[in-house]
């Protein structure tokens, strides 16, 4: 029997995969990123369609229930993605600083104030 939550999750995951496909077609994602996101969503679809699959994996890893495995993996993944986002944000800040610096130095037309040595 198919539960309503399974239908909702499936619709969302198919939507997510379609976004990955569209971004890939635009060239906005690198090959590794396409593979990463497609695998994540494909695995999630398998887990939604056949919840026993996650139970099977959970038992192999020494975790009781499939849903616990999904939660653990989701938390780890979220932490990692937050970390990557922070790194990207730092890189962007650094690029902005370089740009601001370049403008500041190019706009400086006056010669530095000089003092004669005594």
């Amino acid at each position: 029997m198919v539960l309503p939550i399974q239908i909702l999750l499936l619709v969302f995951l198919l939507f997510a995969i379609s976004r990955v496909y569209l971004r890939a077609r635009e060239g906005a994602l690198r090959f590794g990123e396409i593979l990463f996101w497609a695998s994540i969503f494909a695995l999630a679809i398998v887990g939604v369609v056949d919840p026993k699959f996650t139970n099977f994996l959970a038992v192999q890893l020494g975790i009781g229930r499939g849903v616990d495995l999904v939660l653990y993996l989701s938390i780890v993944l979220l932490f990692y993605l937050i970390f990557r986002t922070n790194v990207m944000l730092e890189d962007t800040r650094h690029e902005i600083t370089k740009l601001v610096r370049k403008i500041a130095l190019e706009e400086k037309k006056d010669k530095p104030h000089k003092k004669k040595k005594k």
Partner: peptide, 27 residues
């Protein structure tokens, strides 16, 4: 009466020191 360079956006102390050192290199 001193030389001034201006960041168009606030970049923080590190950004400002970096600009000062870049100015020193340039001149």
């Amino acid at each position: 009466g001193v030389a001034v360079v201006t960041h168009i956006l606030n970049r923080g102390l590190g950004g400002a020191i970096g600009t000062g050192l870049a100015y020193a290199r340039k001149h």
